[in-house]
Design a protein around this nucleic acid. Structure first.
Lengths: 340, 340
DNA sequence: CAGCCTTGATATAACGTTTCATCGGAAAAT
DNA sequence: ATTTTCCGATGAAACGTTATATCAAGGCTG
């Protein structure tokens, strides 16, 4: 019991050769029912669990997949992971998650360790300041990789959200309600995602002849957004609606409005992005742009499986649409704001 | 470029033998500065990254650690993971996370895959209905394991929270404020953790001669707790304070109180557990029991490292105390509740 | 100068698999 | 009866490392 069981141990126990045991365990080759039984029984008796490292090394293919993500606690990310994991585990892969915390250096170390361990595939939200070196390493070692949310390279498969389309819908919805002064609130760095969202907002503002275009930065936390909305309204009193960079910002904005005695959806309209769990239970409930994270995860998994199966096809880009969830924080504008 | 670099490739490039390259890469053995330079240069030129699988197989020790957790999105868990990862990555380990979603069967599959891949260590929150078979597998393969939050076996190291002590403090605090009718709210299954917390609550109620002891179940979500608090107050109108199973329940309870026109901390006092990020920014801010998740993570890491270094010592149990964070949701009771 | 220690490098075997070619023998075909 | 075919099982090599033992060449000592 002290020494760990191997193919050799099992073979000896069952009175057959090593390759025979190997074949039985994997269900390959031609083997008589009699010896199959014998081997299986010996394996069970010894608590034998094959060593995947040795197998992967010899066969050249790993059934381990890494999910490298920029923020562990983000509930949206968590659901994406669930969606992908469901599908991949079904195919017999082991999916393990790494959290870069958007730290490029940490990400570099993690991905190098990832390569050292010769994982079979990678689902990846690239950190903000991803270095060229990290990208080189990945392509040099030909790791099947699918990026997600933020594209990192034209040479890698990518799955993303139609961000511009989504904010265009949100802005258009507010315009249809009658708003003319609409701002974009949230985010600080010009990340790829924020860039796209702002583009959709701006384009719609211009197409509809609304204005002016106002982009107001804020960290993506409730606390920061609560302050930011106040400053925004002080600087631009004409504003009657905001499109937010995310639900956390939108919820923070609602808190800020309430603190100033303004009612979200009545005095000032707010549209969020992501449809996180809190969006539905908040009071008032948040009008927001939703993309199904489960669906996103499934698409991710499928793209990766395809890439593993056929590494030679050119990289693909898949995009998922977001849809407007109408709740209570957006309504028609009122003529004058109390105290405005 | 097409074929991946190995020790052999690098050795040939540098004009030395394979063991020499191995020693240079690991910084072991005696090697002249001249050849060291030569080898390092060759390795860099070929983008060589060692194969950790082969190394682990030969040397018998893995530098990969798995963190198996019951709920991915839980912000408390996320911080524990951060704390542990910081320490372990410093020591050169790769930590990857698996999410069981409290599904014992999924956990079984994941841990079996974990064993197949011969990871070097395991940090583990056992799922609710963890099977005996899973436990056997782990001990049979002698995986260095530390359980966390929920103990699974006397034969494994464990790190936990002093749950009973914490709810005793919370209940005592409410009693000191003058409350006599205090209920315990939240949780549905009799998990180990909830059991302990209820014990601390009950013990304090008895010691102080308060009563009656009321444990009211609720799913650990805001939505469920919002409904549960209303039902609880309808069934037991005398209650003036609740100790909650977690911050999500506490926040939900506050929502429910507000909906009925009651002010948390004035009409009914609420104490949470965990001190999640939202606890501080909520209005009113939540009085809650805090345990530092970062600290918990660091303790976890240290215990595991110790276990890896010396597998023969008997299993240890470490416990972390929680402390009361006084904010706005708990105050002295009022004589009569409006509408009570 | 013989003997000894030190330094730097290497040859070889082993880790636990899978792959591939081979093999004995029984059944089928000539 | 001899050849061919097929089934079931096996031997040997290979995957990329590390551990252990060995080795050549100097530099010291006595």
């Amino acid at each position: 019991m002290a020494n760990k069981p191997t193919l050799e141990t099992v073979a000896k126990e069952a009175g057959v050769s090593i390759p025979t045991v190997s074949q039985v365990m994997r269900g390959t080759g031609r083997i008589s029912e009699k010896t199959r039984k014998k081997v299986l029984q010996a394996a069970k008796k010894l608590h034998y669990v094959p060593d995947a490292r040795a197998a992967a090394m010899r066969s050249g293919q790993s059934r381990e997949i890494g999910f490298v993500i920029n923020q562990f606690a983000n509930p949206f990310n968590a659901e994406v992971v669930s969606g992908a994991v469901d599908l991949l585990e079904e195919e017999g892969y082991l999916v393990s998650i790494l959290d870069t915390r958007d730290d490029a250096e940490r990400q570099g170390r993690q991905l190098e360790a990832f390569i050292r361990n010769r994982r079979g595939g990678l689902l990846w939200v690239p950190a903000l300041a991803t270095s060229e070196r990290t990208l080189d390493l990945l392509t040099a070692h030909a790791v099947p990789t699918v990026t997600f949310l933020r594209p990192a390279s034209r040479e890698l498969d990518h799955v993303g959200i139609r961000n511009a389309e989504a904010t265009a819908i949100a802005t258009g919805y507010l315009a249809d309600l009658g708003h003319r002064h609409i701002a974009y609130l949230g985010g600080t760095d010009m990340t790829y995602v924020r860039q796209e969202r702002i583009t959709g907002y701006e384009r719609t503002m211009q197409e509809r002849g609304l204005g002016p275009v106002i982009v107001w930065p804020s960290a993506d936390t409730k606390k920061a957004a609560r302050e930011a909305i106040s400053e925004l309204l002080r600087a631009h009193p004409a504003i009657t609606a905001v499109v937010c960079n995310g639900d956390m910002v939108a919820l923070g904005a609602c808190l800020g409005l309430a603190r100033e005695g303004l009612r979200p959806g009545h005095d000032v309209s707010v549209v969020g992005f992501d449809d996180i769990e809190d969006a539905a239970v908040a009071t008032p409930a948040l009008t927001t742009m939703a993309v199904s994270p489960k669906k996103l995860g499934r698409v991710l998994a499928r793209v990766l499986l395809q890439r593993i199966k056929d590494p030679s096809t050119p990289p693909t880009v898949s995009e998922i649409s977001a849809e407007l969830i109408v709740r209570d924080t957006a309504g028609p504008p009122v003529a004058e704001r109390p105290g405005g």
